[in-house]
Every structure is written in C-alpha cells, then in structure tokens.
Amino acid sequence: MTQFLALIGRVFLAFLRHTGRLVTFSAVALYNMVLPPYYGRTLSRQMIEIGYYSLPVVGLTAIFSGMVLALQSHTGFARFSAEGAVATVVVISLTRELGPVLAGLMVAGRVGAAMAAEIGTMRVTEQIDALVTLSTNPFKYLIAPRLLAAVLMLPALVLVADIVGVFGGYLVGVYKLGFNPANYIQRTWEYLQPLDVISGLVKAGVFGFIIALMGCYNGYHSKGGAQGVGSATRNAVVSASILILTFNYLITELFFAQ
C-alpha cells in the first residue's frame, strides 16, 4: 500500500518537476527573444527553413483537404438539399480550423523534429557547452531565433494553406460537382468574416510558438547519445501535436464561444 502511494507521489513529483522546468525554460526563452542582442543571420536562416521549405508539404496538405472537404460536404449536404453551402463550408472550415491545425501538425513533424534533433545533437556532442565557453548564450543564439521564426512564419504558411485549400475546394466544386465558377467564388466570399481568418492566424502564431518551444526544449534537455536524441525528437513531435490540439480548442473557445 505504502509502495503504491509512494509511486503516485513519485509520478506526481516528476510531473511537477517537468512542468516547472518547462515553464522556466519558456520564460527564459521569451525573455531572450525580446531583449537584444539579436542574431539576424540565424533568424533569417530559420525563417527560410520554416517558411519557405515547408510550403510544399503544407500546400499539398491544404489542397487535398480542401478537395475532400468539398466532396464530403457535397455528398453529406445533398441529404437535406443544402449543396449550395459547400463553398461556404469549405472556406470557413479551412480558415478557422483545418488550415492552422493541419499546417501546425505538418510543421510539427517537419520542423519541430528537426529542431529537437539538431539541438539534441549539439547537446550530446558538447556544442552547447562550447557556445557557453565562447561567451554566447545558447538561449539567444539557438532558441530565440527559432521561436521568433516559427511565430512569424506559421501565420504566413497558414494564409497560403487557406488560399490553396479554397482553391482545392473550387477545383472539385467546379470540375467534379458542376458548380458555376463565378457562383462558387461568390459563395466563398459571401459569408466569410474577417474574424474567421484572423482567429486562424492567431492560432497559427500560437502553434508556431508551441512547435519551436517543444523542439528546442526537448533537444536542449536531451542526454545519452543517439538514443537520447531519438527520444527527444519523438517527444518534441508528440508533445507539440497534443498541445496544438489542446490549444486549438482553447483558442476557439476564446474567439467563438459566447
């Protein structure tokens, strides 16, 4: 019995320890992100890496999501003769939900994993220690530029995903389901509100922060050689994905629940 209680206590204490460490890490990272000196070179490299090189994967995800959304809502809505709503459903689901969430998850897999692996390898090969001995703060040099780049680039990616996704819906709507092109585009704009897009972009910024934070945090605290880097990478992707879905709900509630 006491052993069981001790186990619960240990698990709880470990949870508190990790939470505390993560919160401290985030605070130090944010502090270093805001205050100078800034590393412009690393920042621009990260922005290209996150923004530009994620375009294909995010674009493909978005276009097929838009296409399947048009097809599904058309067959579904046909049951109560509401096929006319397809364009509206596609654009609102994409801008509010699917754009940010799918782009976030794809980037978590692509960029979050790469960050964890790179920083984790730097940790286990003592490159982070070497930074410190060269009077360079690793939070400033490694972590702040990655956080900032992700926060800036994710909304840009999501904007692209929104547009590409709507285009996917348009393709299916017009060429497969026989909508009138002008009509489809008019229906797309008709009920779309600025807040639909804005809430999606806010989500994207938060998801960007989560992705970079999880990648950096897990990489920074990895230990034990190749295996340690492997588990840091896995933890970065898994924790970022779960946090993205959690915060997706919380932000939606913040914006739309009255």
Binding site: Q127, D129, T133, S135, N137
Partner: peptide, 20 residues
C-alpha cells in the same frame, strides 16, 4: 559570468565544433 568566460578557452574531447 560571460565576462569571466572571455578569460577561458576550452578544447573539448570531441572538439565540439559547430557543424553548421
């Protein structure tokens, strides 16, 4: 500490060069 670090140089076991 960053100021004091300027007094130090360190050669790491695996050289720890920045591979990027």
């Amino acid at each position: 500490r960053e100021r004091v670090m300027h007094k130090f140089g360190m050669l790491f076991q695996g050289a720890a060069l920045f591979d990027s």
